[in-house]
Every structure is written in structure tokens, then in C-alpha cells.
Write a protein that binds this DNA or RNA. Structure first.
Lengths: 206, 206
DNA sequence: TCATGTGAAGACATTCACAGCA
DNA sequence: TGCTGTGAATGTCTTCACATGA
């Protein structure tokens, strides 16, 4: 569909956009590569290299046009249609994530949450309704949900992943601490906080 | 202190250990590189290469001795003394993380939480007491806390980071969506869920 | 002069391919 | 034979160095 972007570039584009949106909200119209770099603790060359991949060109001398750049990044990262997302597991983590995301991106919409606890079912958090796990398959299909975020306790993660795949999900973001195994046509991103903390601990001691 | 390990290897070592602990708890004593690899969706060569860095050698033919390997990894990742960790912001995210971690690692201990809301203060979640932000500086020093996990709303992240650095913290794990800027002798790890979700969305559409 | 865009070099990470051991 | 350990090749990412343009 598009020239292939390096994975790291994609991550940074997402971050550039977030910062640019913020700058734009503050009335800023142009930005230099070194300004953007400073805000993200990276080098200006890195920023320019990433923007190079977009094929975007600045107005020399005045830096990049913020509004333009936001659109260019959006064209690359976003889908045409809105992508529907579900949260599985509405404990503290699931709740935090739902609240966080809701309304943050036009093209990404959390449309449902699932849980097994009867007292959670029917609850509405940040506009997201919680359904029983038993309806997962039907609702994923009905609502055309293509991404699932797994925030259940570790013991249940593998089963939830299977059910998501069976329901026809296309991407999984796994917040649990167990690595998952899914069919290769489902994109899986592991998001592992224990590893992150242990890494910090490792560098702290040195 | 030790030969320098590649960053990626450190991340995987943390994951290997988690899996090995699990295997060990199930009574398994030896493991082949390809078994470990399959559990993490990586290649067996990768596993062997990482283990090579440890200087650890297997009993040929029977795979790696699980107990030994756990210790070898521990010697590398862990500190001698226990590292004290604080959570700043005891909303849903902070609560989830505290509950998650508590007691998961011998050498990493969450010893305090901080919040500004009066109704949170004094609460005890998973054995972690919540203190008012005003006491942050004192408690970090008293308790010899060297890592802070920031789980406050984005608007407050920068200020919290500054206060942590002033208090003498050595490492920060930032769960908020704003990139932070700290002095270079503080190790900073950004842990950005919006980027992770946007990345999944990108790969899903293709 | 000051910032961008980019070829080329360098650093880092993964995979190939195979020797060697039990 | 089946697995480990590793030199060498490949691939990916970052940085250097500098030509170019306003």
C-alpha cells in the first residue's frame, strides 16, 4: 500500500504527531527539527531522517509546517476508516487504559470492553460498555473490531488471545506478563512492564 | 562492573527468567534453546546468542539447567541489595501496577506510593502505603528509593519528574504520554501505550 | 548564516551456516 | 543424530559529514 517504513520510525512518527498536536493547540505554526528533537530527547538528524521517509519537505528556513506535518503523518499511520478496538479485562489496568485512550485519536475507537465478573458487566467507563466474555465472539464480529487489548490476569491471557483470534481479530496488544502465541497473520505487540522495570533497575545499578 | 550486555539482550533475559521461573515451578529441570525460543516467539539462535553473553554453558545434549540459568541471569540483572521503587500517582494505572508487581521479584520492592488526592493518602494497596506528594522528597531519601514509576495525569508528569530527580532518584519509568527531559545521569525509560496501540493499528491495516 | 536533505560510514542486532560434542 | 556455540554475513538503525537552498 505504501513504501515500507522502518518500525522504529513508525513509533517515532506517533510521538511526533502527539507533540505536534500539542504545539498546534498552543498556536505554534512551524517547528525546527532540533526543537522536535529536544522535546523527545533524540537528535535532529533522526527527526529529519524520519521525515525524509514521509517524502515531506519543509519550507526551508522556517522549519516544518506543523499542520501539514500532522496531516502527512496521519496519512501514513491512520487507516481510511476508523479502527475499532476492544479492551478485554476491565480491572484497574483495563479501566486506566480505556479512560486514557477514549477520544484521543479520531481513527482509533474503543468500542467495547469485556470481563467475566458479573458486577463489571453493563458498567460504562469512559463511554465504553462492558460486556460478558461469552458475547466476545458475536460483538467482535458485529462491531467489526480489529484490535484487542488484553488486560486480564496472566493465567487467562492465553485463552483470551485464542478467543480473539477465533473471533477474527487482526491485531493484539498484550499488556499481560505472559508471552502469547498467535497465528502469524495476527499482528502481536507485547507490552511488558516487568521487563521495562527490570531494565531500569539494571541501568540504575551501573 | 560487568561486560556490557546489549540492551535487547537485557530485555530478553528478563523474559527468559520469567519463563524459567515458571517452568521451574512446574518441576521442569532442563530446557532446550528451541523450547525457550518457541515460548517467546523468537529463534533458537537468538536464545543461544543471548545465553552466550552470560558465559553460561549447557550440559550438552540435555539442554540448559533451568535452576542454574535462573541464577546466572539473576547475577547479571539483579543488584546485590534490594532496589526500592515508588509509584507516583495512585489512580487506576498506579494501582494496577502496584498490585501487579508486589512480591514478583525479590530484588525489586515497591515501598511507597504518592498522590495528591486526600482520599488516597493513607490507603494501603498491596502492602504499599500512599503518602502525600509533599512528603516525596523526605520519603525517597529515608527509604533510599532509587526508581520512580510515574503514573500521574500527563499534565503533572514533568513536575513530578523534576521532583523525583531533585529527591535523588536514579531511574524513572514513565507511563505517561508526555516525553520527559531529565538530567543525563538519571536513567529514563519511556513506556508509551498510545504509541504501542498506533503501531498495532499501522500493521493491522496493511 | 543556519537549517534541511542525504550519501556514506558506523554501530547495533539478527540470522546463516557449520564445526564440535555427547 | 540432535543440540549447542560461534565466526561470518546480512539486515536494521543511527550518526557523521557535507552539499544545497533561502
Amino acid at each position: 500500500m505504501q513504501l515500507k517504513l522502518p518500525e522504529k520510525t513508525i513509533e517515532r512518527l506517533s510521538q511526533y504527531r502527539r507533540i505536534l498536536l500539542n504545539c498546534s493547540a498552543n498556536g505554534k505554526e512551524h517547528i525546527f527539527s532540533h526543537e522536535l528533537a529536544a522535546l523527545l530527547n533524540i537528535t535532529a538528524v533522526q527527526v529529519r531522517r524520519d521525515i525524509m521517509f514521509l517524502g515531506y519537505s519543509s519550507l526551508q528556513r522556517k522549519g516544518y509546517d506543523i499542520r501539514d506535518l500532522i496531516h502527512t503523518i496521519g496519512n501514513l499511520l491512520d487507516n481510511q476508516e476508523i479502527i475499532h478496538v476492544a479492551v478485554i479485562g476491565l480491572g484497574h489496568l483495563g479501566t486506566a487504559i480505556s479512560t486514557y485512550f477514549k477520544g484521543k485519536r479520531e481513527k482509533l475507537d474503543i468500542v467495547a470492553a469485556f470481563d467475566i465478573h458479573p458486577d463489571k458487566i453493563g458498567k460504562v467507563i469512559a463511554d465504553v460498555t462492558c460486556y460478558p466474555m461469552s458475547e466476545l465472539n458475536d460483538i467482535v464480529k458485529q462491531q467489526n473490531i480489529s484490535i484487542g487489548m488484553i488486560t486480564v490476569p496472566p493465567e487467562q491471557a492465553a485463552e483470551v488471545a485464542d478467543r480473539l483470534v477465533t473471533a477474527g481479530i487482526k491485531g493484539i496488544l498484550n499488556f499481560t506478563t505472559v508471552p502469547l502465541n498467535v497465528s502469524p497473520d495476527v499482528y502481536l505487540e507485547e507490552y511488558d512492564m516487568i521487563t521495562a522495570l527490570e531494565k531500569v533497575a539494571y541501568f540504575v545499578k551501573k
